[in-house]
Amino acid sequence: MDCDQPQAFRQAYADGELELGRLIEFEAHLQKCPACRADVEKIRAGRAALRASLPRYAAPARLTEKIRAALPITAQPRRNVTIKFWPYLGWATSLAAAVLFGLFIGLQRGQTSGLLDEALASHARSLMATHLMDVVSTDQHTVKPWFAGKTNFAPPVVDLSAEGFPLAGGRLDQLGPQPVAALVYARRKHFINLFVWPSTSGPLPEQSAETRGYHTLSWSQDGLNFIAVSEIPADELTAFVKAYRAQAH
């Protein structure tokens, strides 16, 4: 691969949307081509400026009332389900799917009970409850010491904002009986849960899986087990894991 990639290809790369084969190829090229690196940086800077400057119009409060008034749903609530709006500001996007998914996994867990399923269920729960983060911070120097004293191991907390995965926080969680540290990274409006625990009962195989639009990646390094879970596209999650492993090592 050389410098003749069209703009759309370069932008897709900067957006983390290239499929893995092309991604690896292009990154190999970037390694040795300062001109293309500069170009990608320019694209990223432009996108960041755009994202920082474009306003998101919020629905006026009366709109909810208007919608409900137009629909027969308030007159006759279905069963006794009451749904309040989640206090989740801009992050509400993937919640409905997460709720459903959490319920689905909740039912299935007894049968499949794999760690990946536990991780998926925990990811889904963390999105729908208010329990996404115990410590909310984009600063690794805040999140890292927070775990000290709460866990008997130190999950590597690294800064991946340059790669497009800013740190959002962390929490203590459990996968089945296993207490784990959960690091939360953001990707656009989605989250990545990264579960970390000592591999005393054996290292995890390196594997990836997809279930109902959620992707998981597992691996072990330096005596710790890792499972990353998110609803972002598989190649983005792969890029996240690659960047994390490189820095955590």
Binding site: R56, Y57, L63, T64, L71, I73, I83, W86, A96, L100
Partner: peptide
């Protein structure tokens, strides 16, 4: 999913 669960949370996105 009920209608409320699946769609009402997305009204900000819809409005935007």
């Amino acid at each position: 999913a009920t209608f409320e669960q699946a769609l009402l949370p997305h009204q900000d996105a819809a409005y935007n």
